[in-house]
Design a protein around this nucleic acid. Structure first.
Lengths: 102, 102
DNA sequence: GGGGATGTTCGACGATTGTCGAACAAGGGT
DNA sequence: ACCCTTGTTCGACAATCGTCGAACATCCCC
């Protein structure tokens, strides 16, 4: 299977924002920012693995993450450098944002 | 009519991001950032006025804008200071982002 | 080779979203 | 008083989205 990992400049900003505009995905991104490269399965956020897989695909196709396969496990990491270069401040703003007030 | 203009801290980040994750709304935000307070009608982005009104409502309820009524006209402005305080870097990153590559 | 673990893909579903035209509301001229 | 301008609200509609279970694909290990 070929993993779509688009060049960041080819991704519309709105797609990046849309990818971040979901609670589960934001938790994933935060976990990645804090913990570095992680296995897909390490994201336990109360959704099925089908849903988790879906969210990881959205993140990947929005240019936010890269995925590396190792055996049956897949490791995901944030494309932080590229993101910071193209959208300086964005990631930091999102990551340091206060957690849900509810 | 009461205008919902929530306190920013009450708005989940995901709601802010979702509000920005639309082409029309992003154009509105950019126009506001560049031109300051503007009348609703000044946003000519190829959608009907019903749709425009809808987008402005989304922006307002996500805490991105404030609206002031003057006669039959309504003026909208960006809540830039508050946004910059709560999400430092976010707005700037979004505004300076390259325009659609397409 | 068989079984278990890790992920992805495939419908399916309900909910939300962006869009519109039409109807409505409210002000400002003349 | 009338009409025009400016906006909002109300369905309605198609499209997209988030979610799931089930089926499938890989790989590893015993």
């Amino acid at each position: 299977m070929e993993l779509h990992e688009p060049d960041l400049p080819d991704v519309p900003v709105t797609a990046v924002l849309a990818a971040l505009a979901d609670d589960v995905r934001l938790q994933i991104v935060r976990a990645l920012a804090e913990g570095g490269e992680s296995a897909c399965g390490s994201f336990e956020f109360g959704v099925s693995k089908a849903t988790r897989s879906h969210h990881l695909k959205v993140l990947r196709e929005a240019g936010l993450t890269r995925t590396r396969a190792a055996g049956t496990t897949r490791y995901v990491r944030l494309r932080r450098d590229e993101l910071d270069r193209l959208y300086p401040g964005l990631l930091n703003a999102v990551l340091t944002a206060p957690t849900p007030p509810a």
